[in-house]
């Protein structure tokens, strides 16, 4: 059974309370229709539920989320997956700024573009490895202070554009960023980042993500796998290790 909630003209508190009540009542699949910027959808949910969201998901979608699967048939605003612990977010449109801030686990797939400051301070812990795949391009400060996890930017839709903005990976000290295409301009990269062509050793990490993205959005997985990728990794795990006098 699926519960459908029409979110038209509904305040976010009421909408989220309805979702929580349905989940508490045992519902495992919900459809939210007419969503128009309501904030905090999926926030703090810890059950393995599925939310199908039609419309524009508001700020802080899936913040502090632990387990659910959210599919957004439209765009999402800022702060998707803030400090997310586990679960899956699929966005068929584009997403705004600060996606995946402090994310510790789970996966976010965005078919379109993402804004500024995406994947800041992502970190991994034990078997939790947060992953974000962006079909379009990303803005400035992608992966700043990144401490773990994997970020992939495919830049599939406007290839004349650079895949990422400036200061990519500034302060990065863990994890990896993969950018489709031969080489990104060096002026896009932070000082703490080492760029190299992705090779065979990257395939076990990269290919499952590409396959997932292709399957989710109806693209050719083989075609994506054949593309050249550039890998960004931190030059040091201690970028700020020698600043102090002890």
């Amino acid at each position: 059974m699926t519960t459908e909630i029409c979110a038209q003209q509904m305040d976010y508190r009421e909408l989220n309370a309805k979702v929580r009540a349905a989940v508490a009542g045992g519902e495992r699949e919900l459809v939210l229709s007419q969503v128009n910027g309501q904030r905090y959808l999926g926030v703090g949910l810890t059950q393995p539920v599925k939310l199908s969201i039609h419309g524009v998901a508001g700020n802080d979608l899936a913040a502090f989320m632990d387990g659910p699967t959210l599919e957004i048939w439209g765009n999402a605003q800022d702060g998707v997956g803030n400090t997310m612990n586990s679960g899956r977010v699929v966005i068929h449109g584009s997403a705004g700024d600060v996606l995946g801030y402090g994310m510790r686990g789970g996966r976010i797939l965005v078919r379109g573009d993402v804004g500024y400051r995406v994947g800041i301070h992502m970190k991994s812990f034990k078997r939790q490895v947060p992953t974000i795949v962006v079909g379009g391009s990303a803005g400035d400060f992608l992966g700043e202070y990144m401490a773990g996890g994997v970020l992939v930017v495919l830049n599939l839709w406007k290839e004349e554009k650079e895949p990422v903005g400036r200061w990519t990976g500034t302060g990065m000290h863990g994890g990896a960023i993969y950018l489709r295409g031969g080489s990104v301009s060096p002026d896009r990269l932070g000082r703490e980042v080492l760029a190299a062509p992705a090779g065979e050793e990257d395939q076990p990490v990269l290919f499952p993500l590409l396959d997932d993205f292709a399957t989710t959005f109806g693209l050719e997985a083989e075609e994506l796998r054949r593309q050249p990728f550039q890998r960004l990794t931190p030059t040091s795990h201690r970028p700020y290790g020698n600043l102090y006098a002890y």
Partner: peptide, 15 residues
């Protein structure tokens, strides 16, 4: 966070 990782708390919250 993994053992031995620097814990950097950025000066601002980036959100």
């Amino acid at each position: 966070v993994p053992v031995g990782t620097d814990c950097l708390s950025p000066a601002p919250h980036h959100d």
